[in-house]
């Protein structure tokens, strides 16, 4: 293992490449883990509030571990087995064991194998397939889901444009397209048609709305330009 890979990554370097070099050692150094006692699944998943001081246990799991996820600017405590993907943590675990269920099911599970893009979220500024990232990898990172794209109660221009251009039909792939499009406009506010297609090549739509999705991204881009984007 190289010296470099022993260091915890700076948050800004969490690109797909960086997460591809994810090493368990620096993960364990940098992550706070719960006491790690065997807990029956579902038994007081948030019980105990045992968010222990940073330590380096020999291994994590297979028992559930308590982690903190920062989703759309809010921090959530969840207890998940290390094998739980970020996608499943968002969809199935955030609302467990609380009196005020958090319903973040906008992120969709479709292929569950990193092929279709329906589960796309923004992780520290870069799009990732949340089906292909473990929840435990995401501590300390900023996660933006489709629910976090709107600016307060105002729809993001990309959302407005998708509705106006009918860049959606059944809508099941739409959260992924919205997130990918938003990430594109964040890094390249005025993409060319080719750049739009390239940026959205990781998202599959079965109803067949692509052409209108392209229109929507162009429309949003123009509007953001007018607004001084």
């Amino acid at each position: 293992m190289s010296e470099e890979s022993k260091k915890p990554p700076a948050p800004s370097s969490a690109s797909p490449e960086a997460s591809g070099r994810f090493s368990r050692r620096w993960f364990l150094q940098g992550v706070a883990l719960s006491a790690g006692t065997a807990v029956l699944p579902g038994e007081g998943l948030l019980g105990g509030s045992a968010f222990a001081a940073p330590q380096a246990p020999a291994r994590i799991g297979p028992e559930p571990v308590q982690i903190a996820l920062s989703v759309n600017g809010k921090d959530y405590q969840v207890k998940v087995e290390p094998r739980v993907t970020l996608l499943n943590a968002l969809r199935n675990y955030l609302n467990l064991g609380t009196n005020t269920p958090i319903d973040l099911t906008g992120t969709k599970r479709v292929c569950d194998r990193g092929s279709c893009g329906s589960c796309t979220v923004i992780l520290d500024g870069k799009t990732v397939y949340s089906c292909s990232v473990l929840a435990v990898e995401c501590q300390g990172k900023k996660i933006t889901t489709v629910e976090g794209v709107a600016e307060g109660n105002q729809p993001h221009p990309i959302q407005q444009a998708f509705v106006e251009c009918d860049g959606l039909m059944c809508g099941f792939c739409t959260p992924g397209f919205i997130v990918s499009s938003k990430a594109l406009l964040d890094r390249n506010p005025h993409p060319t048609p080719t750049e739009i297609r390239r940026a959205l090549n990781g998202n599959i739509c079965r109803c067949g709305t692509y052409n209108r999705v392209f229109q929507a991204v162009e429309l949003a881009s123009i509007r953001m330009k007018v607004k001084g984007g």
Partner: peptide
């Protein structure tokens, strides 16, 4: 006419059967 449920679909607010989470739900 844009879809009346369009904003729900672009914001994650559209609840599909896959998204129904009920108290005590089993998988």
């Amino acid at each position: 006419v844009p879809r009346v449920d369009g904003f729900k679909k672009v914001s994650g607010g559209a609840k599909y059967s896959y998204d129904i989470n009920l108290p005590g739900l089993l998988y």
